[in-house]
Amino acid sequence: MLKLPMRNALLAFGIAALGALSAPASAAEHGAAVESRDWSFNGPFGTYDRAELQRGYQVYKEVCSACHSLNRIAFRNLSDAGGPGFTELEVRALAASYQIPAEPNERGETTDAEGRPLMREALPSDYFPSRFPNDNAARASNNGALPPDLSLITKARDGGSDYIYALLTGYGHEVPAGVTVNPGQYYNPYFLGGLLAMPQPLFANQVTYADGTEASIEQMAHDVTAFLTWTAEPKMEERKSLGFAVILFLIAFSGLCFLSYRKLWHGEH
């Protein structure tokens, strides 16, 4: 967190927010309208589709993780109830395929004789490692733009999962007249302002799905969005099923209360 005293900026900002007469919002302040999709997790009874989440995980791992971290997810979460449903054995193997910085060894060293950082295989209890050691390193390899952590992304954008899907499939549109695309920028009408620093991330057949599903751009975008919806709201299935029981109980309880209320008040009104 930056601790610059930004007093004047804040004051000016406060006045602008209050002073009712700030500059008109340009149309570019809103991205293009997104279409609602028919997700398996929509509605009060919607659940995640395990196969979809597993494929989505593959897309994240093979494509998005080149730039984006997933800090809030530990490997063990992949076998949690209500998630992608990997087995614990699979998770162990999957974690072991990642190398992460090791804890200091018994001599207190964190690097080997050649000065390279000591590494170890990840365990299920470890969190997904980031590709970059820090935000500035991530910026440096992305034209100055920070690829946001994806753990909460579907909850952190208006339009949620529909928006993420639209964004991922929203490349290749003709750039409207009057919009200048500078080097390192890409046009995507769904992004706020239309220009972002993420190049088109998905191309047909970029991954090979183990279950034989055809890896079209739409399919991969759909799968990875579903996966990211789970990472943002991992307790959704538990929430909906508990909610069902709670509401059923409350309806029954209200019914009982109503009957006692009517009986008690009979003739008293």
Partner: peptide
């Protein structure tokens, strides 16, 4: 509470 629960759970 039914309304409350509808928000919390759904």
């Amino acid at each position: 509470l039914i309304l409350f629960a509808a928000f919390v759970f759904y």
